[in-house]
Design a protein around this nucleic acid. Structure first.
Length: 211
DNA sequence: ATCCCGAGGG
DNA sequence: CCCTCTGGAT
């Protein structure tokens, strides 16, 4: 996709306004970090269901440490990969308390040093909470970037770098939001709804079922 | 490359 | 039954 098409691409996505908007629910930077950590290979709806149980009981590192591992697991059992996520979140809380004064660190290095926090999770926290110009490439954005030709790349990092090159820094949060929604509701992994896609005319992808 | 691992949709 | 979901650690 040519640079000139980028603005048209996002303007068109915005105007199309796809479907019910569900997002991760949080009321603090720590809740954001915890929710994103839990969201690996899980739906936003599923994560919210768990955090609605967990956060009223424990929404700080100290409170989660006080729950104990089994207590934490009991609150998030409905999410896939819950055992490893509970273990990681618990270990992360311990580090936040012992090394960061109970607060979420602001640097990529410190964030990625937390158990269960990789590049994607760090990018979300850096951008959404701290306003840094990062682009978190999740499964949706990786797929949409490659299918459309907006940001082709063999790895999430390559797609991330393409997007950072093409999207103005101030627009990154917005662009991330719209790429996610587009991937979730229109450019679906399994069965993309190309016939009702607002940006089909600027897309490289040709569905097998097309006429 | 493989494992983790529940819920929801097809 | 199958696949996918805002990945990360080993």
């Amino acid at each position: 996709m040519k640079p000139a098409a980028i603005e048209t691409f996002f303007a068109t996505l915005k105007a199309a306004n796809p479907m019910p908007v569900t997002e991760l629910e949080y009321t603090s930077v720590f809740e954001l970090l915890a929710a994103v950590l839990l969201s690996a290979q899980a739906t936003d709806v599923g994560v919210n269901k768990a955090t609605r149980r967990l956060f009223p009981v424990a929404n700080t590192p100290h409170k989660i440490l006080a729950l104990g591992l089994e207590g934490l697991e009991s609150h998030i059992k409905t999410i896939g990969l819950f055992r490893s996520k509970a273990k990681h979140l618990m270990a992360t809380c311990r580090i936040l308390v012992e090394q960061h004064g109970g607060r979420v660190p602001r640097t990529r290095e410190a964030l990625e040093a937390l158990p269960g926090v990789g590049r994607k999770t760090a990018n979300v926290v850096l951008n959404v909470a701290f306003g840094e110009p990062t682009m978190a490439v999740d499964t949706h954005i990786f797929r949409v970037g490659n299918r459309t030709g907006l940001a082709p790349g063999k790895t999430p990092l390559a797609v991330e770098q393409q997007l950072l090159k093409r999207i103005p820094p101030a627009y990154l949060v917005d662009a991330h939001h719209w790429l996610i929604l587009h991937g979730r509701y229109v450019c679906q992994a399994r069965k993309p709804l190309c016939h009702q896609c607002a940006v089909a005319h600027t897309c490289d992808f040709q569905p097998k079922t097309r006429a």
